[in-house]
Design a binder for these strands. Structure first.
Lengths: 247, 247
DNA sequence: CTAACATTTTTCCAACTGGTCAAAATTTCA
DNA sequence: TGAAATTTTGACCAGTTGGAAAAATGTTAG
């Protein structure tokens, strides 16, 4: 991760109005006294706060979320929360920073030496599992994207781009070897992101359309089946028992 | 459109705190004096406001957007704006209501009597054009979905669901006739929504990953080409000059 | 036990927010 | 033209929001 700590050179969206004293005091009697070891209780509380913040930010976005809400979900008073994270933005930054790392893990796993189709298939499956198991993280990310990624421009322009470039190269080499349809590797990756994250980000819509019938959790399995077919064969009708490529 | 006017039985999310006088006065000396014809200037100003609101809501979501912001973008004072739309929610509701209608138009056009593949192909193309030409509308919608669609639950559970049910039936009949791969029609539609809207909602990400190189607007054409291939054939490598189904 | 430190609570603030209201400015139309 | 209606403005409000300060309450090592 490049992502330097961006101390004062932040994007500073709209909320850069008042002068914050905290900038000056840095490490007074307060706790995030940089470089101090970080006690067990601090770690715990911070985790509680981050968890609560994820809950709130993922629904309302940065601007729409309030410290009071987060504090309430975290079960503590606002000033107490501010004791651990002196700035609202700090919380958000921490969340996003940690997120991108795990978010891209599935793509990192895509292995040049594997079989193209099983690699792609498991990438899709892993991404779909993330949408199912970490929908809030997905929404947090989506929210940030919708707003033009003001707080993570650098991350996506450096870390994300580099990773995708690297994997696009692998996809291209597979295409050169005739083991994968020749097509645009970037858009291929986009389509995997889009189709899988859709199940987290647009969950309400998916549920509403599928109806409140028995589709409790089955929708993820259905989605997995469908996506596998889509990516492997597209929608072209084909005779029964045709062999699937690379399986 | 079912979507009844929801007079007082609104979701009333968090902002149902203070008692608003406007509820009582209804049509005083003020302008949206229900049932009056709506002067030309009123129509104009309302359009200006809605346009500005789209700009702001689509980025920050309902909670994150402020009337002041909207008023500034619209080039008028806040009280003046409030004169045309006495409630923030009113503006949002109007936007979303109008949106869903046009948003689903492409799907409505899918014609049972057409060829399955050209119908699907043009549906994808139309959706992609909408992502290109109306990205703010797409983001407004996405924002609402991310928040759990609190203000349009009914619309998506009735209007949207009905339309999708209807079209799913058409897809199924095509499958029965062996003119389309047998698969889940709902997830098929989801995947079209996801892949196309991705280019509006995650625009920053797409741009960042593609690099600021020459990909000015070409990305939409590239996406169209890629998606056509994906949906028609999937990623399976295939011999040159194979005939495309239904073309 | 107690001084030094960590944590929490109470109180407070200034800017922002959605919205009101009366008066002023402008437009419309007989 | 002038009175009625419409539109715009400026002042104002109460509730919310991000954050500060300091006092009060733990905790813990010596």
């Amino acid at each position: 991760m490049v992502v330097k700590k961006l101390k004062g050179a932040d994007p500073l969206p709209v909320t850069a109005r008042r002068q914050h004293k905290a900038d000056a005091k840095a490490a007074a009697t307060h706790p995030p006294a940089r470089q101090r070891p970080l006690t067990r209780i601090q770690k715990e509380k911070q985790d509680i706060i981050l968890e609560a913040a994820l809950e709130v930010f993922s629904v309302h976005g940065f601007r729409g979320a309030t410290i009071d809400q987060i504090a309430e979900v975290a079960g503590m008073s606002k000033p107490n929360l501010l004791y651990y994270f002196p700035r609202k933005e700090e919380i958000h930054r921490r969340l996003i920073g940690a997120l991108l790392d795990t978010w891209l893990a599935p793509l990192r796993e895509m292995d040049e030496d594997g079989d193209p189709f099983s690699e792609i298939r498991s990438y899709i499956r892993r991404k779909l599992e993330m949408a199912r198991d970490f929908p809030r993280e997905s929404r947090l990310f989506a929210n940030e994207m919708l707003q033009g990624a003001p707080r993570i421009h650098e991350m996506i322009e450096v870390d994300l781009k580099n990773l995708v470039d690297e994997k696009a190269k692998i996809l291209l080499s597979w295409m050169d070897q005739g083991r994968l349809a020749r097509t645009d590797p970037y858009h291929l990756i986009f389509s995997i992101w889009a189709t899988t994250q859709h199940y987290a980000d647009f969950d309400v819509q998916v549920r509403a359309v599928l109806g409140k019938g028995r589709n409790g959790e089955g929708r993820f399995e259905d989605a997995a089946r469908y996506l596998e077919q889509l990516f492997m064969h597209g929608l072209a009708p084909r005779p029964r028992n045709e062999t699937k490529p690379g399986n």
